[in-house]
Nucleic acid binder design. Structure first.
Lengths: 193, 193
DNA sequence: AGCAGCTTGCGTACGCCGTACGCATGGAAT
DNA sequence: ATTCCATGCGTACGGCGTACGCAAGCTGCT
């Protein structure tokens, strides 16, 4: 993680890690199955630096904000975690989704809807972070040559609030006894006991 | 693009491309500066398969839906485009953002707000596509072993509507207090003949 | 004490990768 | 006829992930 933080995940090779640890290259394979496993491990470690608190805040909105902010902090601290966690095969972790889903019981009692909401929030966060991070990786980093499309932290939070507003609105519409307004969707119909 | 589509962008090496074209490896460098430039080129080509129409639909909501769907289709057809376009240094194209920003004049007359909205939509789309695509790349693809977190097309559209709802709400709130109707725009909006 | 079996470190080697360099060739311009 | 230059591409270098197998130490059993 130290190497990846300092020089990017591209600089983290097995040979490099070996010299860093004063060991032979192949010795590493006694502790790690292959390089993918290593990336998975450091990605998980990065995420666990900012774990979702248990139990989640009772206010669903606060919970979503918290989750988003924690993810944001992980990716700010370790930009490479975005590529490793997105590049498939690493870290197909559903625990964050589960946490969010739980935190949304105050909003809706439809688990499918909660799932979809969670996916939306999680996806949104991931997307903005990519936007934000991807720019400063190559061009020179320190330079203030901000490209105009770079998502700022303000954009991040505004978009999040927008998304949460939309969720609240949708949940009310679905949860209200009848509410059959124009946008009648099949989602969110199974209201169980 | 044929190779990347069929076997993933990882299979696309300069040597591979050379044999595919019955040419020497180094001959490729007469047409392309380096591999990054090649990836940028095919990414741009993929995006231009589904260009945003000009002019944009006058209904801002329809415009956003259209943009999102077009991107979705690009990434469905060419999953590798997600990694290449996200992996920085390729394709820092702001034209999509500009298009969205224009399309949002019907929603708000505040260009900063329109920018933030555009970033939010674009980020969300990118995020869901990553979620959707990243899973089917490695595990075996064809198999129906869907992991439960995999974003479906329904999730995609539901989340989008939620986001649009939130935008609408927020724009009304910002625009309503003054200026009477929400569609009053101070900036004259360059309506051409 | 001797031996067997196991874990661990790691040197070597293979087949990939991107690409720097420089030579050969053939057509266009003079 | 000569020059010039755009183009094709062979060779080579340094890097990568990792398969394979050997050597050395630790453990437990006779």
């Amino acid at each position: 993680m130290r190497v990846a933080d300092a020089e990017g995940v591209g600089a983290l090779s097995m040979r490099r890690l070996a010299t860093e640890l004063d060991s032979g290259v192949m010795s590493l394979y006694r502790h790690v199955a292959n390089k993918d496993a290593l990336l998975t491990a450091i990605t998980r470690a990065a995420c666990e630096e900012h774990p979702y608190p248990e139990p989640a805040p009772s206010d669903w909105r606060e919970a979503m904000r918290l989750a988003a902010r924690l993810d944001w902090e992980v990716y700010r601290a370790h930009p490479w975690a975005l590529v490793t966690s997105s590049s498939a095969r690493h870290f197909s972790d559903t625990s964050c989704l589960d946490w969010m889903e739980d935190a949304l019981v105050g909003l809706t009692d439809d688990p499918d809807l909660a799932r979809s909401f969670s996916i939306a929030v999680w996806s949104y966060v991931q997307g903005v972070c990519i936007q934000h991070v991807s720019q400063q990786l190559l061009p020179g980093g320190d330079k203030a040559e901000q490209s105009p499309l770079r998502a700022t932290e303000e954009d991040f939070e505004l978009g999040l609030e927008i998304l949460l507003d939309g969720m609240e609105q949708r949940a009310e519409r679905a949860g209200a006894p009848r509410a059959g307004t124009g946008s009648a969707r099949r989602f969110a119909t199974f209201t169980r006991p």
